[in-house]
């Protein structure tokens, strides 16, 4: 058994802490502009100042402050879209696998269709029609996620429903709905939790990509993807604007994936091929 991934746990803990206590961790505002202090580099550079540890952007906003508040946006979006997308996938996976027959064929064709869909394009379309905002972002990312969840959960359910305890539940007189809720659902929760952690990274990247493309959280609310996008034009003169949020994204995604790997090995060795 692998040891607890302490580094991952510390980084994730740090991120959650930053997201919750962002207002108390920094004296600056993430939105208010201080134009005289614009484009200051991080403090270790010659022209940098310890007032803005990681420098400022083109509007003179503190980059560190925006990163901390950005963590908040990332976490909220991640949690909500995993809840929506994962929840839909879980429900469809259980229904499809357990009930089977025509419903299964129909739902699985839907899943196939979802996989062929250019998700980013669809999200852009959604942003145009529904308008930018948290709800659009959550729906868009949820649409990207559900099919993967549904397919894997369904596979799990197909194996589970052959188990004797399901047959015995029928003998005991349980209704189909009751079997799905009390016998199938608790037995796929391990797999579900593993899928959730393994997808956190993908969701953070998706959120950043959509924000980068302008289909995410509207400015001036800080989001890591948006920060990368805003700094893109000044990458030669002010490298810190894009690079620092980029590093933050990489680190968090890597961390969650490591944690997910550990959780998978721990809870559900069957899924090792994922």
């Amino acid at each position: 058994m692998r040891k607890l991934p302490w580094v991952s746990i510390l980084i994730i803990g740090g991120m959650v802490f930053a997201a919750i206590f962002a207002p108390y961790l920094t004296p600056h505002s993430p939105i208010e502009q201080t134009l005289p202090d614009k484009l200051l580099p991080p403090f270790w550079e010659a022209t940098g100042s310890t007032k803005y540890i990681l420098g400022t952007d083109i509007f003179g906003r503190d980059v560190l402050t925006r990163l901390l508040y950005g963590a908040r946006v990332s976490l909220i979006v991640t949690a909500l879209s995993l809840l929506v997308g994962g929840g839909v996938g879980l429900t469809i996976g259980i229904a499809s696998g357990y009930i089977g027959g025509r419903l299964d064929s129909l739902l699985m064709r839907l899943v196939d269709a979802a996989f062929t869909f250019p998700a980013i394009l669809f999200a852009l379309l959604l942003a145009v029609t529904m308008g930018q905002g948290l709800d659009t972002l959550v729906v868009a990312i949820g649409l990207l996620l559900w099919a993967g969840f549904a397919r894997i959960i369904r596979g799990e359910v197909l194996a589970l429903k052959q188990r004797d305890f399901v047959a015995l539940a029928k003998v005991h007189g349980c209704s189909e709905l009751r079997i799905m809720v009390t016998h199938i659902l608790p037995n796929v929760m391990n797999t579900f939790m593993v899928l959730v952690t393994l997808n956190v990274g993908a969701v953070i990247v998706a959120e950043a990509s959509l924000s980068f493309l302008g289909a995410g959280i509207p400015p001036p609310t800080p989001s890591w993807g948006l920060m990368v996008a805003e700094g893109r034009g000044k990458i030669s003169s002010a490298w810190w604007l894009s690079l620092l949020p980029g590093i933050a994204i990489t680190m968090v995604v890597l961390t969650f994936n490591l944690f997910g790997d550990w959780l998978r090995d721990r809870l559900d060795p069957k899924l090792r091929q994922l």
């Binding site: 188990r163 004797d164 305890f165 003998v171 009390t182 037995n187």
Partner: peptide
């Protein structure tokens, strides 16, 4: 149907597969 279900029950071969591990 409920009456029938109460009257006929079963015990299967594999005691590792016949009990829901999460209950």
């Amino acid at each position: 149907r409920r009456e029938y279900r109460a009257l006929v029950q079963a015990v299967f071969q594999d005691p590792w597969a016949s009990l829901n591990p999460r209950m």
